[in-house]
Amino acid sequence: MRNTFAALSATLVLAGLAAPPVWAQSGGHMMMMPDEMKWADIPSLPAGAKISVLEGPLSEAVPFTFRLKFPANYQIAAHWHPAIEHVTVISGTFNMGAGDKLDTTKTMALSAGAVAIMQPKTAHFAWTRDETIVQVHGVGPWGVTYVNPADDPRKK
């Protein structure tokens, strides 16, 4: 079955969010094992996070699905997205909060299987204590805008 997938490799650039979309399709049907996912750096997040685009492209008004892998003790400053964000925790604990500034005391610990949904332009932040993987899906185009522009790693 894996041989029936057509692998696409290109560079995605949307508001500084760059990652090679690594998704495979065959007649609208897709299956992928975790070890087949290809991980890449994400310029729009602090160093250490990785992305694996499963469905996309993120730059178009079409459905997207991607996974994010965060190392232990990782923090994401307050930011928002132009599209609704559906997050499902795959492994680890993803601590999320809403607001204009990262505050680890004002978060909810989301364990594997938990879900969070943020409406477009809702400021939120997150952090991890251990390695954590989340899956994000929605309809693009997708991007990351930091509440405080000084927090944007693309500007450092």
Rank of each mutant, 00 (worst) to 15 (best):
W142E: 06
A98N: 06
G28Y: 08
A40E: 09
Y146F: 13
I42Y: 00
G99Y: 03
A6W: 02
S52M: 09
T132A: 01
A10L: 07
N3Y: 04
K156V: 06
S26A: 12
G48I: 03
A18S: 14
P153E: 04
A77G: 10
R154D: 02
L110K: 07
A150H: 09
N95Q: 08
L17I: 10
V147Q: 04
K50V: 04
D151H: 09
L14I: 15
D151G: 05
V115C: 06
L45R: 10
L102G: 11
V89L: 01
V134N: 04
G56E: 11
A15H: 13
G140Q: 06
G48E: 05
S26I: 12
E55P: 00
P46G: 03
V139L: 08
R154E: 00
A61H: 13
A10F: 10
A126W: 01
A15R: 06
A6D: 03
Q25M: 12
P141I: 12
F125T: 08
L54M: 15
T145L: 07
T88S: 09
E131R: 03
T107C: 06
H81M: 03
V13W: 00
A10Y: 14
G138Q: 10
W142L: 14
K121R: 13
G138A: 05
R154F: 10
A40W: 11
K101W: 07
P21A: 15
S9E: 14
V115S: 02
E85R: 02
G99F: 00
G16I: 02
T93L: 00
E131I: 02
E60F: 06
N148Y: 08
G27L: 06
S111Q: 11
E85W: 01
G92T: 01
E85S: 03
M30V: 14
T93C: 00
P120H: 04
A72G: 00
L110Y: 02
L68N: 09
W127V: 04
S59M: 07
K69I: 00
H81F: 02
K155A: 11
I90Q: 01
T105W: 00
L54V: 15
V89Q: 01
T107F: 08
I133F: 08
R154Q: 07
Q25Y: 12
P149Y: 13
Y146H: 09
V62S: 10
Q135H: 00
F66K: 01
S91G: 14
A83W: 01
T11Y: 02
K38T: 15
R154P: 01
A77Y: 07
R2N: 14
T107A: 06
G97P: 10
I117C: 06
G16R: 05
P21L: 13
Y74D: 05
L14H: 11
H137S: 15
A19G: 12
A150V: 08
I42W: 05
A19H: 05
W39R: 07
T122P: 03
A72E: 04
T4R: 09
P46K: 08
D130F: 00
T65M: 13
L14K: 10
E55W: 08
S52K: 05
T132V: 01
H86M: 04
R2E: 14
E55T: 10
